[in-house]
Structure formats: structure tokens, C-alpha cells
């Protein structure tokens, strides 16, 4: 795919498009070429209407960028803190930190000069987590909290990007990477892999608010529908079936819920 051609097409169909896009063409080519080339059909097919609701898109992407700033700086500090992360776990956190930095760069590029500036963070959350970069268990707890919050935050915002398919796809792709991070961090901590309101693992309860939900669609009672199969398969009782039904779905958080969780970590 030739990105130059696509951008000429945009300019032809809408003289202001390039400006509204707020992409630096050079930056886009540098950092987005791989993703764009991987999905040329999608990119080409939707490019004409990509900015129909740009105010919403900018708002959602800036919200995501704020969370990515927080995660990226958290891992940057953690990975640099001497003696914090044991040798056995270093690869995981270096890779996670790299992904978060890539998410920051991707979103900043997408937003151009509409990108919000990086806030100043306080990873102690006003002293609630006194020594996140000296105490590995505290670092791990916060890591799980940020990753699980990230998963739920993207999930909550994805439907708002529905009219902008390239960014919806990008958001979904970041979303599942955050879920991979959350799962591996949980395994390192010896936690179960599923977000649960009942087992918060020392993470602030607000991160898992609403995860107890067992109804995904009116009229569909998943406990009744699955109980027999569960029982036949491993003798699971109804209570255990309810837990399985809860944990088979990750629930979204609203932007307000996410900001309430992230707020104490943001100084300005």
C-alpha cells in the first residue's frame, strides 16, 4: 500500500482533511507504517469517513493516552529501580514497559498537536502505596491494578469509536495487549488470571467494581444453561458455576470510574 496515495486521496476529497487529521505525515510514516500496511484494506476503505466525529475520537484517544502515560512511566521507573525486579521477572516487565511506551507513541502520533501533555504522577497515590519502587510486592500490586484498569477502560471506550473503524481496531488491539499483560502479572503474583470482585489481591476495590455481573443479555441465564455441562464435566456445584460465569467475561468501566481510580496517581 502506498500511504502517499491515500493521503492524496484524502486531500482531494476534503481539502481540510489533512489538517483536521492532525497527523504529521512524516511521523505517521515512521511509526504507523507497519500497522497500516498490515490492514491496508481497512485503512483505505474507511479513510474517507475516518474523521466524521473527530471530537469524540480525540477525547477517547486522549483519555487512553493519559492512561498509557501513567503505565509507561510506572514501568520506566520500575525497570530502572535498582534491585526492585528479580532477575527471573525482568524480561516480562521490560517487554510490558516497551509496549506501553509504544502505545504512548502511537496515540501521540495519532493525535498530533491535539495530544494532551503528560501529567505529573505520584505512584504512591498520596502515600497509600508508600514505596512502589522499593517494594516489589507493591510494584506488582500496582502493575496488576493498572493493567486490569486499562483492559476495562478500553473496553468501556471501544463502542464510542464505532464510527471510526481504524481507531476502533487500534483500540481493540491495544485492549487485548493490556489483557495479556494483566494475565502474566497476575500469574507472577500467584493470583488467578481472571478479574474478580471477590478476590481483589490487594488492588483497590474500585478496579473490580461490577465484575460480579452474571447477566450478559436479558433472557439468557448462563448459570442454568451451563450448570449441567459443568456438573457432568467435573462435578462443579451451582455456586462454582456462578463463579465461572462471572469470570468468563471481563466487564467495562466508564471513563468516570477509571478517572476515579487513576486520579490519586495523577498530581497535575
Amino acid at each position: 500500500m502506498n500511504l502517499f496515495n491515500i493521503f492524496s486521496e484524502i486531500e482531494k476529497s476534503d481539502a481540510e482533511a489533512t489538517e483536521r487529521f492532525q497527523f504529521s505525515r512524516r511521523k505517521l510514516l515512521k511509526t504507523s507504517a507497519i500497522a497500516a500496511v498490515a490492514t491496508p484494506a481497512l485503512f483505505a476503505a474507511t479513510v474517507n469517513k475516518a474523521f466524521a466525529d473527530s471530537a469524540t475520537v480525540v477525547e477517547v484517544l486522549n483519555f487512553a493516552l493519559t492512561l498509557e502515560y501513567l503505565e509507561a512511566e510506572f514501568y520506566e521507573k520500575g525497570n530502572m529501580a535498582p534491585g526492585l525486579i528479580p532477575e527471573s521477572d525482568k524480561m516480562v516487565f521490560e517487554k510490558i514497559g516497551m509496549h506501553e511506551k509504544e502505545h504512548v507513541d502511537f496515540l501521540k502520533t495519532a493525535l498530533g498537536d491535539q495530544a494532551v501533555a503528560k501529567p505529573a504522577f505520584d505512584f504512591t497515590a498520596g502515600g497509600a502505596f508508600p514505596d512502589p519502587f522499593m517494594n516489589y510486592q507493591v510494584f506488582l500490586t500496582l502493575s496488576q491494578a493498572f493493567e486490569d484498569t486499562g483492559v476495562r477502560a478500553y473496553k468501556g471506550q471501544a463502542p464510542r469509536l464505532k464510527d471510526d473503524k481504524p481507531f476502533l481496531l487500534a483500540a481493540l488491539k491495544i485492549h487485548s495487549v493490556e489483557a495479556r499483560h494483566a494475565a502474566e502479572v497476575r500469574l507472577i503474583r500467584g493470583q488467578r488470571v481472571w478479574a474478580s470482585e471477590m478476590e481483589t489481591g490487594g488492588v483497590p476495590a474500585a478496579v473490580y467494581a461490577g465484575e460480579n455481573n452474571i447477566y450478559q443479555k436479558e433472557g439468557i441465564d448462563l448459570i442454568s444453561l451451563t450448570y449441567k455441562d459443568m456438573y457432568l464435566s467435573n462435578g462443579t456445584n451451582q455456586q462454582a458455576t456462578e463463579m465461572i460465569v462471572r469470570e468468563a467475561f471481563d466487564e467495562p468501566l466508564t471513563k468516570e470510574q477509571v478517572l476515579a481510580i487513576a486520579g490519586p496517581f495523577i498530581k497535575s
Partner: peptide, 24 residues
Amino acid sequence: KIAGKMVSIEARHATLARHMIQPK
């Protein structure tokens, strides 16, 4: 929305299965 609630579970599953082969 439902797809979003399931895809992150699939990603957690994939991570768990991979972790069983080569953790961390």
C-alpha cells in the same frame, strides 16, 4: 460490547496457556 467482554478473556486464556509452557 459482548465481543469486548470476551476478547480479553481469550487473551488471558492465551497468556495462561503460554505461561504453562514458558512462564515469565
